[in-house]
């Protein structure tokens, strides 16, 4: 999927370069696409009959991990801001994507322009790609919590199969709920940060 995304991005960039960006998409079309995406992800979550049962069984402590992931991602992004010469607010908005690249790019693009959208997209795609590398390295050393945290939103879908290989069976359940809670938070977190 990551290769397909990067290929699609390259095709889009080539088309834009070729036509000098002459074709302008109305903002309403982008919003409509975004709505369809959110709706589809809602369907994916809602159709899983075990979702709410898993959340109930896991108990309240499970919610600690999404909270620490949000706090860590925002802290890390803020710490990176002076190093890369980016305003803290912009870096925070990028970090608030938590690995959900499409949503991060759309939300930052609508409020802060194509430059920040590109940065948000790249940083969050990279987070997913790096998660594929680091999760298998952390799991054999019983660092399930760290492996879940680095995955961000992707722990409910793309990186879940990797986390499922952990020796502790509950890691996969924690990872799934972690991803779901973060996915519910991102649509609110990015606009909130951009209002700072």
């Amino acid at each position: 999927m990551t290769a397909l995304l990067l290929a699609t991005l390259a095709v889009g960039m080539f088309a834009g370069w070729l036509t000098h960006g002459a074709v302008r998409m109305p903002p309403s079309a982008e919003t409509a696409l975004f709505a369809v995406m959110l709706f589809g992800i809602g369907v994916q979550l809602g159709r899983d009959p075990a979702l709410w049962r898993r959340i109930r069984h896991a108990g309240w402590r499970m919610l600690l991990f999404p909270v620490t992931t949000v706090a860590g991602s925002l802290t890390g992004a803020a710490a990176a801001a002076p190093l890369i010469g980016q305003p803290v607010r912009d870096a925070l908005a990028v970090g608030a994507g938590l690995g959900w690249y499409s949503l991060a790019a759309v939300l930052t693009g609508q409020s802060a322009g194509a430059g920040l959208a590109a940065l948000a997209f790249l940083a969050n795609v990279l987070r997913e790609m790096l998660s594929f590398t680091f999760i298998p390295l952390l799991l054999p050393y019983r660092h399930g919590a760290m492996a879940i945290a680095i995955g961000g939103c992707t722990t409910m879908d793309t990186t879940l199969p990797l986390l499922h290989r952990a020796r502790r069976a509950d890691v996969a359940v924690y990872a799934f709920v972690h991803g779901v809670v973060l996915s519910l938070l991102v649509p609110f977190l990015i606009p909130l940060v951009l209002r700072l």
Partner: peptide, 20 residues
């Protein structure tokens, strides 16, 4: 439903990037 929409969004991002 989701995958083509995500790809369309990425295509638009790429297009906007390439056009500048």
């Amino acid at each position: 439903l989701v995958t083509p929409v995500v790809l369309a969004i990425v295509l638009i991002i790429g297009y906007e990037l390439g056009g500048q």
